[in-house]
Write a protein that binds this DNA or RNA. Structure first.
Lengths: 253, 253
DNA sequence: TATTGACCTTTACGTTACGTCAAGGTTTAT
DNA sequence: ATAAACCTTGACGTAACGTAAAGGTCAATA
């Protein structure tokens, strides 16, 4: 079956302008152009457009889609399976939002209380996801190996006094964190105090402190299972809670 | 709890630029501005931002959101219930897309066949939904009452001959439609023939024919249950099928 | 106390993915 | 043959920010 711009647009539920734009940026060129300059699309283009729309639905920029699809390693079938997974993820996220709105209704009716944190559950998830994809590896490379090594180096040179102080601080962090965790609010006073203690503890290990690095490390606590295991030992979710508290404390994205 | 731009942005998962922009367009102004010009947000603003994000999630333009929320008739609780419904709709639509991708995988593996129509199931739905919200009423007003009245007037003046011809055409339309419906492809030859017959039948009733009006009427077949009942009598889904066929035939959105 | 670094401000230009004319050629139907 | 409904290529407009520049503010540190 062959389609003109408008027919294909109608079929796919997009505008003809969109198809012309896609031709312009070279992401979807017609099978051929007839003698009077009309764009004619064939079966291959129909399938390609479908693929493009799947990617678009997931919020991926057209430029990126183009790169993905023109890469020699592109595997259409594999892509479809990824689409499926991403769509399922998206549905989970939507479910979070629905839970959120239901909680908000209940809270408006006075049937329950909601922290400010909870009010944005489901919105945020998306951003964190993107951040993880974008920066996850980078953060690890930047703040992971390097600072861990530095930490060790510094630890070697610590005096007995320092060592005792740092051990005591560590206990205080854990204690404050457990107390804060019970409140459930990483923006609360207790959690912010825990974040501050965590910072003071950190400065014993780091040669220099920056909010950015602090936030990066907190993110790593959730991403790297060795850290997660350490913090979640007593209470599952503690690592994530600490990360949230630190991110608010540092005000860092 | 009071928040500076960055803190609120962090809380809600948006950028500080976004908050400044929202202030600029007057959709979310801070509770107050401190002595050095810093924006300070309070509880009311947190809740308002949450509402805005719900609307935004549903793809509504900020300008429209602003109009909705500043209208004197705005009822926050009612809005939340609508959000819930819209989000549930969105989930249904997502399920359609997931079904689509699964079908596509199956078809790529040769386990089943898919029509071009089916390949865009779930993408299109969104547009139709928007069209309905935007133009549904307008179409009904434009092509509904008016053309129905005109039709009646013309019918009154029909000759016996014309009447017989139109009755025969009506039977042909139904026959062609039933045949086409069995193929399941509204873009196919049979369906397009049915659409053409439908047009010829229409011209007996209408003083003037236009593709736009034809497409509008077809849309009404699905929206107005009196029409839907008539066409779906023999086969449920027939009205929608006819609409699709006519929309492709007329190439109209 | 001075400095530094992370905040905050406004101004302003850039970007993405199209929507929307405008001006003109082509195809189809009456 | 004339009109209606296609198609084409510009080209400018728009929404919702991102991003960079230039400069004040504030808390912590040397």
């Amino acid at each position: 079956m062959e389609y003109t711009v408008q027919k294909l647009a109608q079929l796919a539920g997009v505008s003809s302008r969109t198809l012309r734009y896609y031709d312009q940026i070279g992401i979807l060129t017609p099978a051929r152009v007839n003698s009077s300059g009309y764009r004619i699309y064939g079966q291959k283009e129909v399938d390609r457009l479908q693929q493009i729309l799947f990617y678009r639905e997931l919020g991926i920029a057209l430029e990126t889609i183009k790169e993905i699809m023109t890469a020699p390693s592109f595997d259409a079938e594999k892509a479809l399976n990824e689409h499926r997974e991403q769509l399922l993820k998206k549905r989970k996220q939507l479910d979070l939002l629905i839970t959120n709105v239901e909680k908000t209704i209940a809270s408006a009716e006075g049937r329950m209380n909601m922290s400010d944190q909870e009010k944005f559950e489901g919105f945020k998830k998306k951003m964190i996801d993107e951040n993880e994809r974008k920066y996850g590896k980078e953060i690890r490379e930047k703040y992971g190996e390097d600072t861990v090594n530095q930490s060790n180096a510094k630890l070697m040179n610590m005096s007995q006094e320092d060592y005792e102080a740092v051990t005591k601080l560590e206990a205080e962090v854990r204690e404050a964190l457990a107390e804060a965790f019970a409140t459930g609010d990483p923006a609360g006073e207790l959690a912010q105090k825990a974040a501050e203690l965590h910072k003071r503890w950190l400065t014993y290990y780091w040669t220099e402190y920056s909010k950015e690095a602090h936030a990066g490390l907190a993110q790593m606590y959730v991403e790297d299972e060795r850290f997660t295991a350490y913090y979640d030992k007593e209470q599952p979710g503690m690592a994530a809670f600490l990360r949230d508290a630190v991110h608010i404390y540092t005000g860092q994205k």
